[in-house]
Design a protein around this nucleic acid. Sequence first.
DNA 1: AAGATTAAAAGGTTTGACAAATAGGTTAAT
DNA 2: ATTAACCTATTTGTCAAACCTTTTAATCTT
Lengths: 259, 259
Amino acid sequence: MALGSGLQTGLQTGLQTGEIVRDGLSRQVADQLRAAILDGQLKVDDRLPNEEDLAKHFGVSRPTIREALKILAAQNLIRSRRGPAGGTFVSRPDPQGLGEAIADAATLLVGTGDIDVEEMLTARAETEAVCCRLAATARTEADLAALRAEVALQRDESLRDEDFCASDVRFHRALVQATHNQPLKLMMYAVIESFIPVTNMLIYREHERRRSVDLHEQITEAIAAGEGARAAELMGRHLEGMRGLLNATLDRRAAGRTG
Amino acid sequence: MALGSGLQTGLQTGLQTGEIVRDGLSRQVADQLRAAILDGQLKVDDRLPNEEDLAKHFGVSRPTIREALKILAAQNLIRSRRGPAGGTFVSRPDPQGLGEAIADAATLLVGTGDIDVEEMLTARAETEAVCCRLAATARTEADLAALRAEVALQRDESLRDEDFCASDVRFHRALVQATHNQPLKLMMYAVIESFIPVTNMLIYREHERRRSVDLHEQITEAIAAGEGARAAELMGRHLEGMRGLLNATLDRRAAGRTG
DNA sequence: AAGATTAAAAGGTTTGACAAATAGGTTAAT
DNA sequence: ATTAACCTATTTGTCAAACCTTTTAATCTT
């Protein structure tokens, strides 16, 4: 779309109405462009006018436009390239990028104690059980192969803890993939990219890994057999085990701090 | 923290190494500041140096610093105030803002047809069933009051469809709140802020609303009675009903397009 | 002591310029 | 004719220096 047509400017400059301004011309410009993208006025891969034209269109300077574009780029709504044939384009929405943002936020939330680990394990247990059930009916052979590959890797005793955790994350990622449900996948990014790493960081130092691998394997085979309920039940047991270990770990840390 | 101490600059300017630069000094500055925040070098409510000092510290210009700060502000990691005693501060992480980002992404995914409505309803059914089960044990009287208030509102036949949908969203929000599980709440933002509105937009024009309200009421009372399984089952039925209506709607639209 | 005035600090915005990357065409050499 | 090197225009990226607006706190006035 050429923009220019439907897109209103209507920015609130400080000089005019004196009404409540949600601070910042760049913010307002970003909001309007975002609205245009979400409304479908600007479609995926559409090219926006160049920065100078945008500046003219909105009646602001180029640095202000650039700040606005940076905001949208930070939200993965647009991307920019230099050169002729370059410019700013509407991005295809990308769950991956969103996952990173979620992971950052969740990391912070856990760090500040705003997220209780107990609650986190409950959320994991419930949502991953859902994935197990759906995966049991929707999984393909490729999905099973991916799950089994991670189990096999985790059986390697010489694997460093760090790599074990990475494999654990991939296992759960593959589990979600096996549901073949895009929206669920989107939601589960919060779990995969942040809750799982956080849990691992807390636990795996003292966790004998074999029990985890055994459960991973049993879950995989239950899914392969189409037994969703059993897979879900195993996942619940897996996380219950973690809950116990986690509490022990936290207790020991608390004791170490006071003693 | 005063910054300056632990924070390395080490930006890759175009003139130097010629190595792969992930485009943009502002991006690099933002990445470093973000890392400092996530590492805990910069704690919540810490004040960053003013923009001019940051520019000096990183060896870039003020507009570049401002772009970097806009990126972080867009991710709700920092906030800025004017005036002396003003400045840029590390924000308390805020699930609300993250939820909006998830909602934006989900809205786009639905808009571009990357999300299948069938899959969406499955995801809704499964995850909201989880909420029902947890809410049945964790809900407080205040939660029940909130749920009942929305049901009562929805009983009003003179309510405009638009307001009915808004109430529907609030009902589901209250349902999630009743689980008293922060991480689950975080995940459910995708459902609440985008999947539900999308579903409503597609359906409620032709939906006799009474059946929905009846189910909402039954779900609420099941939760009040602590019968999580029954609440989950009712929610499943609710969404199954929607699935039928939705297919009928889509079929009719497809027919109207060709005929 | 209470209120009005004012100065300073900080972010917000503008202007104008130059740098770097890159697609595409042009020219020169094979 | 083909290929390689080079130019050129376009667009984002960066910089520098100023000015504006908002907010706070110290100062002055009453």
